[in-house]
Design a protein around this nucleic acid. Structure first.
Lengths: 149, 149
DNA sequence: CTTTTTAGTTAAGCGGGCTGAAATATATAT
DNA sequence: ATATATATTTCAGCCCGCTTAACTAAAAAG
């Protein structure tokens, strides 16, 4: 049943399975770590795109500056984020994950990962190498693609 | 740069890019359709796993029966879910997506899909077929794997 | 130097998700 | 037939995210 399917269909099926799994997993993980999804998303964003200012948060999540400020404040108090003055612009703040924040997100990634790993471990060596190559292709394409936006 | 990477690393990189993208996309879509994430997740669950009773919702999302009932009620009033009596057990309810609910979720899938499609369209024919095959392998593995849990 | 714009904070208030407790109705067990 | 268990609903109350409006402070423009 690993016959060549049209790529459109392969994508659709894969995304269906994978997205449900990973969304559910993340939400569960966020909850179990005592964070709301909005809070958790901010940590993910900082991990993914690195340090940024408050205004970036409000733009990226499409919320007001006030909402961003309040959300971030909770994360600061929980010890997951550090909020320092931007040396280049004393109005602005620089947000970055603390070690504890980093650890938390990495744990989440690790869990999500474990599922995929278990999955992949059921494959033959040949299948593994095919999958590995294909994911490499996709990742590189995605990175180039992101840059263009 | 599509040299053979260890599969562990390919997975990690791919998931990093992909998960951020798709999570963000889903949340944005949910918000723009006027639904909260919990509400939206219920619709996704119904689309993914098909019709079910109220108790399944509360178990699956790890919320009380009361919370499930309230969430579902809003979705019923919004016209996305139909809530009928289960003919086999008159205490229970059978929840299923209405046409409008189905359409909504499919739109979301379509959007998520479009990104992947654009991505894949940057690939050569040869790369496309490799990716297609690999995703087929993964999807099948995932489906077998799910069944066992 | 004054004015205006930009970055962020604070507070009041709305609506939403969630829980616990109480209630209803049906199914199951004895 | 009665007692118990199960599936769901309703309600009061809490916390949280979000918005608007008012405020502070610093940068940029004139």
């Amino acid at each position: 049943m690993t016959n060549p399917l049209p790529i459109y269909q392969s994508l659709r099926e894969w995304m269906d399975v994978f997205m449900h799994r990973s969304m559910r997993g993340w939400m569960h993980f966020a909850r179990s770590s005592g964070l709301s999804m909005p809070q958790f998303s901010i940590l993910m964003q900082l991990q993914h795109r690195g340090s940024c200012g408050m205004s970036v948060i409000s733009e990226r999540f499409d919320i007001t500056a006030a909402a961003a400020s309040q959300l971030v404040d909770k994360l600061v108090q929980a010890g997951y984020i550090e909020r320092d003055e931007d040396p280049n612009d004393r109005r602005a703040k620089l947000l970055r994950l603390t070690e504890s924040g980093e650890t938390l997100i990495n744990q989440g990634i690790e869990e999500r990962h474990r599922w995929m790993n278990d999955l992949v471990n059921h494959l033959s060596e040949k299948e593994k190498s095919k999958v590995s190559e294909a994911l490499g292709i996709l990742t590189e394409a995605a990175q180039q693609f992101e840059d263009k936006q």
